[in-house]
Simulated scan of single mutants.
Amino acid sequence: MNAAGPDRNWLNRWLDHLRFERRLSALTVKNYHRDIEALYTFLCNAEVGDWAAVDGGHVRSFAARLHRRGQAPRTIQRRLAALRNLFAYLVREGVVKANPGLDITAPKAPRRLPETLDADAMGRLLDIRVDHPLATRDRAIMELFYSSGLRLQELASLDLVDVDLAEGMVRVTGKGAKTRIVPVGEKARAALRDWLKVRPQLEKTPSNAMFIGRTGRPLSTRNIQARVTYWARRLGLPQSVSPHTFRHSFATHLLESSGDLRAVQELLGHSDIGTTQIYTHLDFQHLARIYDQAHPRARKRR
């Protein structure tokens, strides 16, 4: 049986701090909770009964144990980030004097470039047959994803009042409860108009949600993910497609056309331009392919 660990009440207070003070999404809080439970189990096994007794040695041992168990570098990074976040809160509340995770680094994860669809594949996916209200809804969802580069949670949280079709804009609440206004293209506006015409057929009781299911309830993130996967498979696309594929494709295609990294950063809602810079790698790959195909000194002899 595990020994008693530090006071769990502080974990609950920290989670409430994330929910109500920082106003993080329910999914983000759930992920933080899962990651910190791994730390709490470790501390119980190590017989550490006080938050103030946790030091850098414990944190290093925690990270090493995750590594030995085969956890991916990104998972270790995420769990150390949750640890640092928790202890920053405990420092603020006077429970501990210092944050033991500040100087501990996780193994570096290989940089993965996001998967995207080219314009032709995207066109195939968006050109679905809309012979049913659900198909009409799904096309509107995918058009809006690609038109405006929304995150999955952002789209799932949209209310009817958030979309202004006359002005071609959508008001989005992103990470950290930050609000931004994003343009909506004409194709997406037309798809949304079509959806709003048939939406009453699914609405059982009054709902403010932009996207609802066959029961009339707001679509969950899992529902939306499943519908995107369904259409990609039905159309025989050769790669896995997720809501984030639309966001990555939006950013990549926009950057290829405009070269304006700052504009893409604002449209995506990234607080740090370093996050957006991954798309410059994709843009360079695109340019390199064109160079290889077109430059006389780059082409391989056949």
Rank of each mutant, 00 (worst) to 15 (best):
A4W: 02
A4Y: 02
D7L: 08
L15C: 06
K30Q: 14
H33F: 01
R34H: 13
Y40L: 15
H58A: 08
R68N: 11
Q71I: 02
A72C: 11
A72N: 14
R74H: 05
I76W: 03
L80H: 12
L83Y: 00
F87P: 11
G94T: 09
N99T: 11
P100W: 02
A109E: 04
R124A: 04
R129T: 10
V130L: 01
D131P: 03
L134C: 05
D138E: 07
M142T: 11
L144N: 04
S147C: 03
G149E: 08
L152H: 02
D159S: 15
L160I: 13
L160P: 09
G168D: 01
V170W: 00
R180D: 03
P183S: 12
V184K: 00
A191P: 11
R199C: 09
N208L: 12
N208M: 07
A209T: 12
I212P: 04
R214S: 12
T215H: 01
S220T: 15
P238C: 03
H244E: 02
R247C: 09
H253D: 08
L255R: 14
G259V: 15
R262V: 08
R262A: 09
R262P: 09
A263N: 06
V264H: 01
Q265H: 07
Q265I: 10
E266S: 13
S271F: 03
T276V: 08
Q285T: 12
I290D: 00
I290F: 01
Y291S: 06
D292C: 04
Q293V: 12
A298S: 14
